[in-house]
């Protein structure tokens, strides 16, 4: 039985992933901002087979609350073995270009906050000599683009932070997974027109669940994004500048 902490639990991808852990009979500790929504999720996960489900209300940007949350998670689960960090916001790029505070707030939520949390988590897991840190970053972090470089650069920072953390924890028994979803049809992307490249939270959740089980280090989900992003990363700059995506 895994003991899974999900931070940003009410996100669509996190909820779909939590259902797969519940079906395995795992114990879950859900962290999110809305108490009522956490309770609705908890009832569902218990019904689906979770060994136990506890909830904790926290805003991930309240960095001072991180330590209390982790202590409560340890109380509830006995110990931590798998942590999924799944929160983030997709800011309006053009609004960020006009408003520096908005850009910095997006950086706070997408980069600074998870880095703070990961620092505390890494120290705990390292001292125990095992565990999994699975963190949702994004394909947007693979190259800066004019349509979403505030979000993309925050995710790039997070990806690089995870790369370094994995390097540091190599040999410690702690496993770090960087998750890079492509375009996923969730509340975060609700206003977008959807096309062939779009995927569902359920599909992405299956990939995440499997990648955690197999101790993978980097996950593009769905898998074709690995090829797409390979092309995007390697596109010569003179050509990339002329593209319009």
């Amino acid at each position: 039985m895994r003991k899974v902490v999900v931070i940003g639990a009410t996100s669509a991808i996190a909820e779909a992933t939590a259902r797969l852990f519940a079906a395995d009979g795992d114990a879950l500790f859900l962290v999110g901002r809305n108490a009522a929504h956490l309770e609705q999720m908890a009832d569902d996960l218990r019904t689906r087979g979770a060994a136990r489900v506890d909830t904790f209300v926290m805003d991930a940007n309240d960095l001072a609350a991180h330590e209390t949350m982790l202590a409560r998670a340890e109380d509830a689960l006995g110990e931590l073995d798998t942590v999924l960090i799944a929160y983030g916001t997709l800011p309006d790029q053009t609004a960020c270009q006009r408003d520096v505070d908005l850009a910095l707030a997006a950086w706070q939520t997408n980069a600074a906050s998870p880095m703070a949390l990961l620092t505390r988590l890494a120290n705990r897991l390292e001292s125990r000599g095992r565990g999994t840190l699975a963190v949702i970053s994004s394909v947007a972090g693979d190259r800066g683009r004019k349509t979403n470089y505030v979000y993309g650069s925050a995710k790039a920072a997070l990806t690089t932070f995870l790369e370094g953390l994995r390097h540091r924890l190599h040999g410690s028994g702690v496993h770090v997974l960087t998750i890079k979803p492509g375009l996923v049809d969730t509340p975060m992307t609700e206003s977008f027109e959807k096309g062939l490249l779009w995927s569902t939270p359920e599909r992405v959740a299956r990939d995440i669940h499997r990648a955690i089980g197999r101790q993978r280090e980097e996950l593009y989900t769905p898998g074709f994004w690995r090829i797409v992003m390979l092309a995007v990363r390697n596109m010569p700059r003179w050509l990339f500048k002329r593209t319009n995506f």
């Binding site: 609705q40 999720m41 009832d43 569902d44 019904t47 689906r48």
Partner: peptide, 10 residues
Amino acid sequence: TRGLDRFIHF
């Protein structure tokens, strides 16, 4: 309503 897809109690 497809997002209202949780079980409440069995």
